[in-house]
Nucleic acid binder design. Sequence first.
DNA 1: AATAATTTTTAGATTTACCTAAAAATATAA
DNA 2: TTATATTTTTAGGTAAATCTAAAAATTATT
Lengths: 220, 220
Amino acid sequence: MQSFTEENYLKIIYHLAENTGNVQTNAIAEQMQTKPASVTDMIKKLAEKGFVDYIKYQGVTLTEKGRNAAIEIVRKHRLWEVFLVDKLNFKWDEVHDVAEELEHIKSTALIERLDEFLGFPKSDPHGDPIPDKNGRFAKTQFTKLIDLKIGDQGTITGVSQHSSAFLKHLEKLGLTLGKQIEINDVTDFDGSVEILIAGKQINISREVAKHILTSSNGKN
Amino acid sequence: MQSFTEENYLKIIYHLAENTGNVQTNAIAEQMQTKPASVTDMIKKLAEKGFVDYIKYQGVTLTEKGRNAAIEIVRKHRLWEVFLVDKLNFKWDEVHDVAEELEHIKSTALIERLDEFLGFPKSDPHGDPIPDKNGRFAKTQFTKLIDLKIGDQGTITGVSQHSSAFLKHLEKLGLTLGKQIEINDVTDFDGSVEILIAGKQINISREVAKHILTSSNGKN
DNA sequence: AATAATTTTTAGATTTACCTAAAAATATAA
DNA sequence: TTATATTTTTAGGTAAATCTAAAAATTATT
Ligand SMILES: [Mn+2]
Ligand SMILES: [Mn+2]
Ligand SMILES: [Mn+2]
Ligand SMILES: [Mn+2]
């Protein structure tokens, strides 16, 4: 049984490893909002417990055991987010902090019954995939909106930025999950993107376009 | 903002104070499954923070602030228990431990929306009253089954013992909340009670009868 | 390859929530 | 009311997770 702190480290190492292979001490420290010296201490403990492989000065990688533990936490986090949005009518920008707490509740029965209660959802309110109880994710593939070409159509399936500010912004623009869009133009000047959404044409910044994920339907 | 530990102390002091006025160090230690010396440490901290009034060697009493904090935790605990039973199909003997964890989740929005989602329940799966968001309890009054006289009728409205063993036992006997009962006889030998429940006559021990709470309908 | 910059680790403290053992205060009994 | 028992507190310490400052290792730059 791991402490909340250990669980948070595992989750963060897992997410950092999705991008890069070896996870660096400083990167963990930044995510955990703590100091590198503290991370080194915790890394040693996690290595001791068999959750990570660790070579001094070389960063860490999750072991099989560590990966499973991390995925379990991700699963809980995302299921609770679904609960908050689907059942308690939270907005998608309001759920993350509460889920950060709920993800640490220790009860296998609880999470399995919650999963069932929610109808075994495959993705969370931000489009992120929810692993099943065996830790398996449904295959997901997406194209960043920024990478679509003029004339391409697609459906919004996720976001790669979870800040409340960003999500509220999308909400206001009507850019929510499941919406159909089409790329009308890309502005030379600032790289902003003209898109067609629900019959209306709007302009979104490059920065916003980078963090919207779509399932492209290819050219129209 | 209090730590989990502080919250648990407050809750336990609150429950102990329901019976006796001043709460003693040893009583708290027993409930917290810790040592009296540790309790003294924590008591000082809680007094420092204004949650309890404390005079050395004289035990503690909750301040207004402390009482409110404690009631908030009780409210969360009981609402989560309702959620687990009503929505996730947990049995009434399975919910306590999970609720012990869930009660510490810090989000006012969460608990208010949960309350609404559950239909503003007035009591939890064990018949214990749920305070509203202002900390007010619906008036409850009950008669212990053991105190009913032969011929009295009543409805089971609660239990004063929450152990899984006891609750499972009641379940097996069909003695669940809302059931109508009638006292047929009291055995001289061991004080056990003969009751009529759902048309069947059963015998329950004095110990069991002590912990069943009823709303007596008076004599039949 | 030597130097500079960056990253990571160690050393030594701090805080929180515990603990044991012994002292002090209070309550009970003779 | 003195002696005994119980309760409570103090004193001093431990373990987990953090910190700062300084040393060591690695990586990047000239
Ligand atoms: Mn989240
Ligand atoms: Mn999410
Ligand atoms: Mn309970
Ligand atoms: Mn209860």
